[in-house]
Write a protein that binds this DNA or RNA. Structure first.
Lengths: 208, 208
DNA sequence: TCGTGTATTTACCAAATGGTAAAAAACACG
DNA sequence: CGTGTTTTTTACCATTTGGTAAATACACGA
């Protein structure tokens, strides 16, 4: 695609540009994931990134552009674990691995999980088109795969869509409601979560 | 406690006061549940309630007081379904009824569910003390009950705390992530959810 | 070392925000 | 009806907010 390059002759970003954009996005992820789009302020992002407000607007044309950039990045990360689910794999194992990957993401990327939760809570004003275009067909596809496995007796029959909802909710809960868990939890939460969820979904899906 | 009354000689609120406070709280629930505390504005609440901004501040001394009032009201509603769980009841049925009540709440009070989710997402700055004082001991108590049931062989053994987390997350998900479900869901979501969750937790907890 | 494009700061701005004071209007009630 | 109280409006205010323009400092290749 040399055409694209010649049509938009933007030079490759300098080292400084790359570093500062990363700083800004990192600080913005903190702020947006905690307060949502409207509750977040450029001043907060400015403080946390160490860059002055006009300097931030030198790298991103508006507050919303930072948010959109974060959401775009998020979409890829978000769909990845589901994409990896292999229709040729061993059914139960594939599902349990998916649960594991989602739980790992909750632990390793809690800010991203909360950014997503905030966006959906607000009615997905910026995310809805993405979800319709990317998530919906993916879910349709993978639910069909799961349905197939069930029809073949390789998994106990249940509603594939709601199975997916329950995987999403139980795993993301550990990131999104962390503040609550910190109050009422006593154990090594993620280690226990791992074996509990394994147990939960094995019981549901094991045939025989 | 006539002392209290004589010490704070506030008269009983008039009809107008009652009606307007309700209007404000209803509008505020809309706005806070969608945008969180910081993302919500008095002007929005003003528009939605039909009362002018200074008029709102005649009934509530500050934006934060409206929010706090909502959260206080919420706490009672929120704990109720768990309180109702009866240690003398039939174990599996008690749990399934709890799931049912939580799911009913998600369907009937989605704004309240999202208000709660927003507060926790933001780190529970206003709710944390309430949770520690009211939720924590209640959870401890009910988890002990469940543990007892398991020890007696009336329920299959599993981690009671994480069982509770999974009940919370799966049920609240239908309210909090409604925007997402509207995009990818096809069925009569709540009817399917009901039977799916029943199935999920029965499989997990049924002894034998 | 110099010049040129890149990066950052300084100094702003208009609009929105939470909130106040006081006057005006509506109301309750003897 | 009149009078004291409650409710609502009008007119503000200081601060914060997202954003801009222009001047300045910096990096870096020739």
């Amino acid at each position: 695609m040399t055409i694209t390059q010649s049509m938009t002759p933007e030079k490759k970003p300098s080292r400084i540009q790359l570093r500062n954009r990363l700083r800004i996005l990192d600080a913005a992820l903190d702020v947006f994931s905690q307060h949502g789009f409207r509750g977040a302020t450029l001043d907060q992002i400015s403080r946390e990134s160490g860059l002055s407000k006009p300097n931030i607007l030198y790298y991103f044309s508006a507050k919303e552009e930072i948010h959109i950039t974060l959401l775009n990045q998020l979409m890829e990360t978000w769909l990845d674990p589901l994409i990896e689910m292999d229709s040729n794999g061993e059914p139960l194992e594939e599902i349990l691995n998916y649960v594991q990957r989602k739980l790992d993401m909750a632990r390793e990327l809690p800010r991203e999980s909360r950014l997503f939760a905030n966006e959906i809570l607000q009615g997905a004003p910026r995310m809805a088109p993405h979800l319709k275009r990317d998530l919906l067909p993916l879910v349709d596809e993978k639910c069909a795969v799961i349905q197939n496995w069930m029809d073949q007796g390789k998994l106990a029959p249940t509603n594939p869509r709601h199975l997916m909802y329950s995987i999403w909710s139980t795993t993301q809960h550990y990131a999104d409601f962390e503040a609550q868990l910190n109050i009422i939890s006593t154990d090594n939460t993620y280690a226990e979560a791992q074996s509990y969820l394994r147990h939960l979904f094995t019981n549901l899906l094991n045939p025989t």
